[in-house]
Design a protein around this nucleic acid. Structure first.
Length: 959
RNA sequence: GGGUGCUUAGCUCAGCUGGUAGAGCAACGCCCUUACAAGGCGUGGGUCGGGGGUUCGAUCCCCUCAGCACCCA
């Protein structure tokens, strides 16, 4: 391998990506221009817990595409970036780190020191995240980067809390919450996941108080909570238990008796139709307890151990240990009727995976129904628009059934609740203690203590679109950029985040937070599984950019697992999926891949193989640019100006161009064609991006670059530039078009592939007469309508079809691509003749023809391979390379295909219903097609006959 | 239990307001043609999950069944 040359020839992303990002950032190109219509996207702030994953890479790439596009379109564009403190997640990470490194718990350290530790971690981790974002090419305005616990953000959080409190929309209540007995905090409904697990249904006998020989049987999935039972409930209409309602039963293992009550909540068909009521430990029971004015008995400590409210025998036992002992004791007393297998939904904390305990505590809540109403209307009215549209159903469903939001968390990391209590427990709110005193006119000697808890992380996230812009101050940024334009996020956080932003924003700014919400799919692995550390199937976007060896990848995936036993399995599947590790693809290829998978579907199986194709695409573009530079020269032709209108001629003959003035240019057919195709591409690109079809946007540009510009236009430019058959004017026109279209392509593609386009543009722009420091701030291509040229497109299609026809014959006959062939033409209409005389040279070059000769219309062609393009007949006479059998077989295949279609068409057109009822144009189209096929078949069949009569030609004397 | 998606070529996916299907990758054949072998030029491959309905005509609209996935309770 000739390394020196290939390095020069090949596209090498790394250096260029690093170089250009630094240049952009240093030059301040990411900041809003201050001119034009405002356009703003708030970055969904990644958690400072760690590093960016594929989902981030995906979403942020799409945002960057939008941002770069709108910036180039001249809008005053702001990508507002930052990170989220992510209360529980971050606290857990740092706690674990502390435990590993110093064997200390956060309690050993104390609140203040522990929070300091987290801040240290935040600096490190936040830095990591912004490094990764930079590698991705994200054009975030770093000057304006925010963190949800910045002073400004915190001020906004307290402001919102105070206002809601003062309006009675925030209240403190003692009620059941989802309690995480491992993390020792309440969590919201949304943070609980319910998964079906194998469990048991215990049937327990509760003896009647007045007659211990009789008993009532209760079915339960949680026998240990019986120690907190306050009643047995039956359905009021359940005939089996009518007589027992109002009686007392003896609660086994305790010395308490409890009543039998009637409540419609009970499902008579489930279990025995009798339900134990444990208001302190079950959400439904709590409601029943309230209805019947029963006092809940809490039997658990915060860590879910049995507390002093239970009989001494069980105190101090962990809940599942207690369950075993209780069941054993009941069995000993012969109070277990039976034990059935039973599937049940087990609630687990989404962070800790601990089984969640419904637990009676004091917590702060936001009244949600009032806030939800305007938020529902905003989407109904279309002030906020979901894309794809059907996500609004999901949104409505949640919003219409919204429950109050538990916002307090028993954590140390987060926004401390701005509430102070006096010694009687009365609460006062304020920005700080002094403010709380002032607001409530409290004397200096009133002792106040602040609430120990912090707010749910999503409370501050809900303010993100406006708090980052300086709210509650009336900053210029807020006035300019709010409401923001678009939010790009995954459907997994519609409830957590999107809905709450809409609610809070309407409440506090009176405006929606954003107009469009583009909901992305979720990135999954190639098997369709969710990517997660514990499954060991995560991919780091940076590893796709830089590449990673198999061993490093295995090490990375198996490091620090919660379940080390998984390591072996993970290693095995990793080695199988990536036997060679992952090669380096560069950022641009990764970004293009992300765009190309961004359709409206909700699950995206990420296939690393696609990256290779798009890296190749980079290489293609790179080499196309090399070709252009080789042919255009290194200095600007003074006649070239961007989007210059250059005289066009209707044909490419040398004669017609001699009329031009010296120094002027003339556009050839390929020039006019590619300029026209460029316009259509630009049009389509705008159209697709307007509806957030990043996949079609990317595909449109890809197709144009590869299949039209490279495959056809560059090839067609070769004969013009390299032979003397063409005038200088025309060569100049071709050079102009080469460089102009390339310059347009680069701008078109820049939002997706910012690095390679900038790198090439820097060299191309001067040759195209374009001035500017960076492609980033160049105008995005707009359609120039009068360059759309239907005639040129039709004419070039004609040329292509002739070339393709010859190539197909050549390929099907296994004739080497380089072998020059003689071609005979027959019949054809005036247009065929005119086009042919104009483009003979191009045709000859691209189809590799030795000669082109016309036969008279009535002349019998020699034995030959044949193709028909409209009325034109193409013959490639038999030679050593073309043999009768192959051509016979080929013709047969062709006839077979057309015959089948003909039959179908005939039946269709023979159907009176179709002819009568279908639109005339559809019928006419089918008729034309029928005629076309029939004509072709006649020709093919006659060719077949001719072939059968022909003798095998003698091999040419010289090969 | 309620809801939302998905099922199209070997794989991953497009398919606009209904007019009998496309791309990329993979496969196969021929080529190292002076931008690119990370390439060029061609080729093969699909009863569009099953059934029913509406329609002249259904991958597309409606119903139903099956499988898969997710969300809410």
């Amino acid at each position: 391998m000739n390394t020196d040359k290939t390095i020069d020839k090949a596209y090498e992303p790394h250096e260029l990506e690093k170089h250009w990002y630094q240049t952009w950032e240093k030059s301040g190109y990411f900041a809003p221009s201050g001119k034009g219509e405002p356009y703003c996207i708030p970055l969904p702030p990644p958690n400072v817990t760690g590093s960016l994953h594929m989902g981030h890479g995906f979403g942020f790439t799409l945002v960057d595409v939008l941002i770069r596009y709108e910036r180039m379109r001249g809008k005053n564009t702001l990508w507002q970036g930052g990170t989220d403190h992510a209360g529980i997640a971050t606290q857990m990470v740092v706690e674990r780190k502390l435990q590993l490194e110093t064997k200390q718990s956060r309690h050993d350290l104390g609140r203040e020191k522990f929070v300091d530790k987290i801040w240290e971690w935040k600096e490190e981790s936040g830095g990591n995240i912004s490094r990764q974002l930079r590698r991705m090419g994200a054009s975030i305005d770093w000057e304006r980067e925010r963190f949800t616990m910045d002073e400004g953000m915190s001020h906004a959080v307290r402001e919102v809390f105070i206002k809601l409190y003062e309006e009675g929309l925030i209240y403190r209540g003692k009620r059941l919450v989802n309690w995480d007995p491992v993390l020792l905090t309440a969590i919201s409904d949304l943070e609980v996941t319910n998964e079906e697990e194998e469990g048991k249904l215990w049937h327990i006998r509760y003896p009647l108080a007045d007659d211990a020989s009789k008993h009532i049987i209760v079915a339960t999935t949680r026998p240990e909570t019986m120690l907190g039972d306050v009643a047995i409930a039956v359905h009021p209409d359940d005939e089996r238990y009518q007589k027992l309602i109002g009686k007392q039963v003896k609660l086994p293992l305790t010395d308490r008796t409890i009543p039998i009550i009637a409540d419609t909540y009970v499902d008579p068909l489930f279990g025995t139709g009798c339900v134990k009521i444990t208001p302190a430990h079950d959400f439904n029971d709590y409601a029943v307890g309230e209805r019947h004015k029963l006092t809940p008995i809490n039997i658990f400590t915060p860590t879910a151990h049995i507390n002093e409210n239970a009989p001494e025998a069980y105190r101090g036992l962990e809940r599942f240990v207690a369950r075993k002992k209780i069941v054993a004791d009941l069995e000993a007393l012969e109070l277990i009727d039976k034990i059935d297998k039973h599937k049940l939904k087990v609630p687990r904390g989404d962070r800790s995976q601990a089984v969640i305990e419904p637990y009676l505590t004091w917590q702060w809540y936001v009244k949600s129904k009032v806030l939800a109403e305007p938020a529902i209307r905003a989407v109904e009215k279309g002030d906020v628009r979901f894309i794809p549209e059907n996500w609004n159903k999901t949104y409505f469903q949640w919003m219409n059934n919204i429950e109050d939001w538990c916002i307090s968390r028993q954590l140390w990391w987060g926004h401390r609740i701005p509430v102070w209590y006096d010694e009687s427990g009365k609460s006062y709110v304020g920005q700080d203690e002094a403010d709380a005193r002032k607001r409530n006119k409290l004397a200096a000697d009133v002792k106040l203590t602040q609430d120990e808890d912090v707010l749910d992380t999503w409370f501050s996230s809900a303010l993100w679109p406006f708090s980052t812009l300086g709210w509650p101050e009336k900053t210029p940024e807020f006035n300019t950029f709010f409401p923001t334009s678009t939010l790009v996020t995954g459907f997994d956080i519609i409830f957590f985040w999107v809905a709450r932003m809409v609610m809070m924003s309407l409440k506090f700014t009176g405006k929606v937070p954003f107009k469009d919400v583009y909901i992305t799919g979720l990135i999954r692995d190639s098997e369709g599984h969710k990517m997660s550390k514990s499954k060991g199937n995560v991919l780091d976007p940076i590893d796709l950019i830089d590449g990673i060896s198999l061993d490093d990848l295995v090490a990375k995936r198996t490091y620090g697992l919660m379940q080390p036993a998984m390591a072996q399995k993970i290693e095995k599947t990793t080695r199988k999926e990536f036997p060679e590790g992952i090669p380096s693809f560069g950022t641009d290829a990764l970004r293009f891949t992300f765009c190309s998978v961004a359709s409206y579907t909700r699950e995206i199986r990420f296939d690393v193989n696609r990256l290779g194709g798009y890296r190749n695409f980079c290489n293609k573009l790179w080499n196309a640019a090399r070709y252009v530079m080789m042919n255009v020269g290194t200095t600007l032709d003074p006649d070239f100006r961007r989007d210059d209108t250059i005289a066009s001629s209707s044909d490419d003959t040398i004669a017609s161009s001699s009329r031009r003035k010296p120094g002027s240019s003339e556009l050839s057919l390929p020039d006019r064609w590619i300029l026209s195709r460029l316009q259509r591409t630009i049009q389509e690109a705008h159209k697709q991006l307007a509806v957030y079809r990043f996949d079609l946007f990317a595909q449109t540009i890809y197709d144009f670059i590869w299949n039209e510009y490279c495959d056809w236009y560059l090839e067609l430019s070769k004969p013009i530039l390299t032979t003397v058959n063409y005038s200088q004017e025309m060569q100049r026109g071709t050079r102009y078009t080469l460089v102009t279209v390339l310059e347009n392509i680069l701008r078109l593609l820049h939002p997706i592939m910012p690095f390679i386009t900038e790198d090439i543009w820097q060299r191309i722009a001067p040759l195209a007469g374009v001035k500017g420091k960076t492609i980033m701030l160049q105008p995005y291509p707009e359609v120039i309508k009068d360059k759309i040229n239907d005639e040129a497109e039709a004419e070039l299609e004609w040329l292509k079809s002739i070339i393709v026809a010859v190539r197909t014959i050549r390929s099907e006959m296994n004739i080497p691509p380089g072998k020059q062939l003689p071609v005979l033409l027959r019949k054809g209409n005036d247009k065929d003749k005119k086009y042919l005389s104009a483009h003979q040279h191009s045709l000859q070059t691209l189809a590799k023809l030795e000669s082109i000769n016309w036969l008279k219309a009535d002349e019998t062609p020699p034995p030959a391979a044949t193709a028909f393009v409209g009325e034109l007949e193409i013959y490639i006479p038999f030679s050593g390379f073309i043999i009768k059998e192959e051509e016979t077989a080929r013709l047969n295949r062709e006839i077979g295909k057309l015959d089948k279609e003909l039959t179908a068409l005939k039946t269709k057109l023979g159907n009176a219903q179709f002819v009568d009822r279908a639109p005339a144009e559809v019928v006419a189209k089918e008729r034309a097609r029928l005629d076309d096929i029939e004509a072709t078949l006649v020709k093919l069949r006659s060719q077949m006959r001719a072939l059968q009569n022909a003798a095998e030609p003698s091999r040419p004397a010289a090969g």
